[in-house]
Amino acid sequence: MMELFISAFITLFVVIDPPGCAPIFYGLTTGASTQQRRRMAIRAVIVATLILLAFAAVGEDFLRLLGISLEAFRIAGGIMLFFIAMDMVFEKRTQRREDRAQKIKETPEIEDVSIFPMAMPMIAGPGSIATVMLLMARAQGMEQSFVVLGALAANLVILAVAMLTIGPLMRLFGNQVEAVITRLLGVILAALAVQFVLDGLEGSIL
């Protein structure tokens, strides 16, 4: 169970990417008071949690309704996660997030960024939704499913803490440390993505 938790935790940590989301949130909420930033951070995490839990609960049934096998979804999800990992290694993902954040900042009528773009698509985006569904599909029984959900909850708590404390953290670490962490996590995610594909191929052959 501990191996499953660690694997699920690392996978979700890389995809949800608290070190990448928190600085974007800080940039989007420049000029907001501490109380306003706190409310938006909490609201964003709550909404993202509800979205991810919904896909975790009914994702497998939804695939079955569409006639998609779990093996096919594992392979497709692994390929998608691999491309996300490559974007992280070469910093393309960070640049896209910054571009999206800049567009939001340039739209003065949008003040509350908790729902869009923070909750979705930055936190509960295609990558994290697919990852939650993949991990839940791999879980065998209720016990393992709760382990995966525990890993998801731990990541969302870390994200919430990072978003609430991002101001001092940005002054302490700066952008260079964030870039190093993002590249390292990208390499780990690439290996995990390949494992997803291998699991899907093994299941389809056997």
Score class of each variant (00 low, 15 high):
M1P: 07
M1G: 04
M2Q: 06
L4K: 13
F5W: 12
I6R: 09
I6W: 12
I6V: 07
S7A: 08
S7K: 10
A8C: 13
A8G: 11
L12S: 01
F13L: 15
V14Q: 02
I16Y: 12
P19V: 14
P19T: 10
T29H: 15
A32P: 03
T34D: 11
Q35S: 08
Q36L: 11
R37D: 08
A41R: 14
I42R: 10
I42F: 09
I42K: 07
R43I: 08
V47Q: 04
V47K: 07
A48F: 10
L50T: 03
I51H: 00
I51L: 06
L52D: 06
L53M: 15
L53E: 14
F55E: 05
E60K: 02
D61Y: 03
F62W: 08
F62L: 14
L65G: 15
L66G: 01
L66E: 05
R74S: 06
G77D: 07
G78M: 01
I79H: 01
I79F: 11
L81W: 14
F82Y: 05
F83D: 06
F83C: 03
I84Q: 08
A85V: 00
A85Q: 02
D87L: 12
D87A: 14
E91V: 06
E91I: 10
K92H: 13
R93I: 03
T94Q: 12
T94G: 08
Q95L: 03
R96C: 02
R97E: 14
D99V: 15
A101Q: 04
Q102D: 11
Q102R: 00
I110L: 14
E111N: 12
E111G: 12
V113A: 02
S114F: 07
I115G: 00
M118K: 07
M120I: 08
M122A: 02
I123A: 03
A124N: 06
G125Q: 01
G125R: 01
G125F: 01
G127E: 11
I129T: 06
T131K: 00
L135N: 05
L135Q: 04
R138D: 08
A139F: 11
Q140T: 13
G141Y: 09
E143T: 13
S145N: 09
V147D: 05
V147E: 02
L149W: 10
G150Q: 11
L152P: 04
A153K: 12
L156V: 02
I158E: 03
L159P: 09
L159D: 04
L159W: 15
L159Y: 15
A160R: 08
V161Y: 07
L164T: 13
G167V: 14
G167N: 06
P168N: 08
P168S: 03
L169H: 05
L169P: 01
R171M: 12
G174K: 12
V177R: 07
E178H: 06
V180G: 01
T182F: 14
R183V: 09
R183Q: 13
L184W: 10
L185H: 01
I188D: 02
L189F: 02
L189I: 05
A190V: 10
A191S: 10
V194P: 04
Q195K: 09
F196A: 12
G200W: 06
L201T: 07
E202P: 01
